[in-house]
């Protein structure tokens, strides 16, 4: 006991410095973690506040989950996972390709310019991006429907026809993320020892051979790490992309509803808080397990890059 007090005293300045963030973490991260039991309760909002409501709401066991898995769980899980898999694969291909191309462009000034413009979409909010693409997709005024009209074709009702949306969402994800992704890979390419290329050149290797036998193999560890990390987040999705870009259009829910948007809509309508919380719980637990698994895998491949 005496020791504990002495240690506290010895570290009191540093303890004081960690205090604000600690309080923040408790309020905004750890209390909600305990709030996860809402998923097992028939949560009723009580005027006495959060803790009172949490403690005095009735336990209902797995009822919320039963209800969830009877209704939307399959659809939102399928959408979330399939989109994420496609995003991971296309994102990897695009980021690596553009990183290599940017490094190969002889005019460095132009390359820098390309990089700057490609990175730009990353800095915009999904609301703004939604407006950008509304200019193209608007049903009566949009660019695309005008072109269709000139070609003598029927206009497409973009915000109520689900069939093009998987492609639109995949394109939007690439549009916003490629610049960001290629920056990371460019950093890795810049880190490759130049002498490899010099040696290959002396042996008469063509540029394509150099990329295939030096650049790509050297990038492999980074690619693996980033992919495994992305797999760990396969149950999460970018809320703005799936909610704001399709303008929350009900006709598109079949192809745009993911776990995050499902939880948000449940929360907004307050229709079934228990089931909504169950969906959130399901997402958190699966995400947690996947992060642990991916970290385990990274540890096996290359322990230097593991999270813990």
């Amino acid at each position: 006991m005496h020791n504990v007090i002495r240690n506290f005293k010895k570290n009191k300045e540093l303890l004081f410095m960690v205090l604000p963030v600690t309080v923040w973490l408790i309020l905004f991260s750890y209390l909600p973690m305990f709030g996860i039991v809402i998923a097992f309760k028939d949560y009723k909002i009580h005027k006495n506040g959060f803790l009172y409501s949490l403690i005095y709401s009735k336990w209902v066991g797995l009822k919320n989950f039963e209800y969830l898995f009877k209704t939307d769980a399959w659809l939102i899980t399928r959408n979330t996972i399939l989109y994420n898999i496609v995003f991971i694969v296309t994102g990897l291909i695009f980021s690596v390709t553009f990183a290599i191309l940017l490094c190969e462009v002889a005019n460095r000034r132009l390359a820098k310019f390309y990089q700057t413009t490609m990175f730009l979409p990353h800095f915009l909010s999904w609301v703004v991006v939604g407006y950008f693409f509304y200019g193209f997709l608007s049903i009566d005024k949009g660019f695309f429907n005008q072109i269709l009209k000139i070609m003598g074709k029927e206009p497409v009702l973009w915000y109520s026809d689900p069939s093009p949306w998987p492609f639109i969402l995949i394109f939007m994800n690439l549009w916003k993320g490629t610049g960001y992704g290629s920056v990371v890979y460019m950093a890795a390419i810049m880190g490759i020892d130049k002498t490899y290329y010099e040696a290959a050149m002396l042996d008469g290797a063509s540029k394509w051979q150099q990329i295939k036998h030096i650049t790509l193999p050297m990038l492999k560890p980074v690619m693996i790490i980033l992919t495994v990390l992305a797999l760990g987040r396969i149950f999460n999705s970018d809320f703005g992309l799936f909610y704001q870009v399709p303008r929350d259009s009900g006709a598109l829910y079949d192809v745009t509803n993911v776990i995050d948007t499902f939880v948000f809509r449940g929360l907004r309508t307050f229709s079934n808080i228990g089931m909504t919380a169950a969906a959130g719980f399901y997402q958190s637990i699966m995400g947690f397990l996947l992060v642990l698994i991916s970290n385990y895998i990274i540890n096996k491949i290359d322990s230097e890059n593991a999270l813990f």
Binding site: P32, G49, S53, F264, A277, G280, S284, F288, V291, F308
Partner: peptide
């Protein structure tokens, strides 16, 4: 701090803490 990167309570409890507490 790092644990919050791995696990979170999800949107519903977060919303309840922010509004009710």
């Amino acid at each position: 701090a790092v644990f919050t990167m791995l696990f979170n309570g999800g949107l519903v409890p977060y919303y309840m803490v922010c509004t009710q507490l």
